[in-house]
Design a binder for these strands. Structure first.
Lengths: 138, 138
DNA sequence: CAGGATCCTAAACGATACTG
DNA sequence: CAGTATCGTTTAGGATCCTG
């Protein structure tokens, strides 16, 4: 069958097609939102930090240098809602809450860590490229 | 020589050590800034888009759905300064400018794409986890 | 066509104070 | 301890107009 005539679909990617594919390039696609959560300023660091195992709130706060209480709580909540982070609260006083990665969370965080590690390792190279760019600009 | 006595460095990670390692957890470390540029809202999408090969400004604008001219120009500039993107301007009227990935740029973008791809593929699973979380909340 | 300049809004973020 | 609530600041981002 040849239902797809040349002049019927002028654009290569219809919106519907991109949504079905989960296309991050599509503005309306939910994958773009998830990608934003994962790659958010603090999301990245929290995901990597949790690879070290279960952490308490204050542990994370210490580990992720410079994060405020507010942002830590907020980012943990969105990561939990996306199913990447598991939150376990022990009903004791004073409160004791433990955060860890879910199986899916381990999968994303692995990729995030790959990226972060690469940047850390390549930092000298990158900084040098920057200076070269500066020189050219002058 | 034993210049490093027990009570001299009480913290496991001194700032100097973390900077030397290029530690993203360290607030002052440049790697954190590079990571931010790469994982910025539009940075991610542009890096992935450029994997398809050389693009002109307007091509990118079309491909990265929803980006404004301002943010496209701005993000391309920081990516260029980090040495990930190469900008080639042909001195003609009307202007013709081509953007592509540098060798280093290809390396980061590969990892960024890995992440984006994983999210696209796992989207159904993720969305389902979200709904489950919603149900628990109710 | 590829932006730069300007103005403005909305969102992110931080600091602080407070609570079970 | 693990947050929430509130407020003020800063930054990201968009819209529009302009130019070589």
């Amino acid at each position: 069958m040849d239902a797809r005539r040349r002049d019927e679909i002028p654009l290569a990617d219809s919106l519907a097609e991109r949504l079905a594919r989960g296309d991050v390039f599509s503005e309306a696609c939910p994958s773009r939102e998830v990608l934003r959560n994962v790659t958010s300023r603090w999301g990245v660091l929290i995901l990597v930090a949790l690879r070290g195992g279960t952490h308490r709130f204050s542990d994370l706060r210490r580990k992720v240098n410079g994060i405020s209480e507010k942002m830590l709580a907020q980012t943990l909540q969105t990561l939990e809602q996306d199913g990447f982070v598991l939150r376990v609260a022990h009903p004791v006083i004073p409160p004791h809450v433990e955060y860890s990665l879910t199986p899916v969370g381990q999968e994303v965080s692995r990729r995030v860590e790959d990226l972060a590690d690469w940047i850390e390792r390549s930092l000298p190279q990158i900084l040098q490229a920057r200076e070269t760019a500066q020189t050219r600009a002058v």
